[in-house]
Amino acid sequence: MAAKLKYDSVKVGDEIPKFVVEGVSRPDFVRYAGASGDFVPLHYDQTFVEAAGIPTVFAQGMFTAGLLSKALTDWVGIGNVRQFKVRFATRVWPGDTVTCTGKVTNKLEKDGEKLIEGDLVVVNQKGEPAIRGSFRAAAG
C-alpha cells in the first residue's frame, strides 16, 4: 500500500495541515444523518430540541469526527490509518467554524512497521476544543 508520509522526514512536533470548515450548517447535519443513519432528532428537529430545553440543533459528534478524520487522511493517506480515537467535549452549533488539526507526538517501529502517533483536535471559533483525539498511522 502506498505510503503518503516518509517516516524519516516526519518529526515529533510536526503539525497536521489544518482543515477549516467555516460555518457548519443544519444541511450539513441532515446530510450526515442520511449518510450515517444517525437520525437522533437532536441534530435536525428544532421543535424537539426546544422541548428538551436546548436552544438549537447541534452537530452529531461523529459528523465533526468525520471532518477530523479527513484532515488526518489527507496527510497520512486513508490506507495508512491504524488507529483513530476521539473524545467529545463541547458541542458544535450551526454557524460554528471548526478547525481540525493535530500534532505528531511519537515515532516507533512495531512488528516491522514504521508508525507515527499523535494528538488530534477540533476547535471552534472561540478556541474551545469540540473533540480531542489521537491517531496511529503507518509511514513509508
Binding site: A2, V21, R31, M62, F63, G66, L67, T73, I78, F84
Partner: peptide
C-alpha cells in the same frame, strides 16, 4: 458518507484510481 464529511478524495469516487493506488475503494475512517 465521504460527501457528508466533506472529503472529496478521488479514492472514494474514482474506482480505477482507487484500485491502482490502494487495491480497491476504501472506507472513510469513521
Amino acid at each position: 458518507f465521504a460527501r457528508a464529511i466533506k472529503d472529496p478524495d478521488p479514492v472514494y469516487f474514482d474506482p480505477e484510481k482507487a484500485k491502482k493506488e490502494l487495491g480497491g475503494i476504501p472506507v472513510p475512517v469513521t
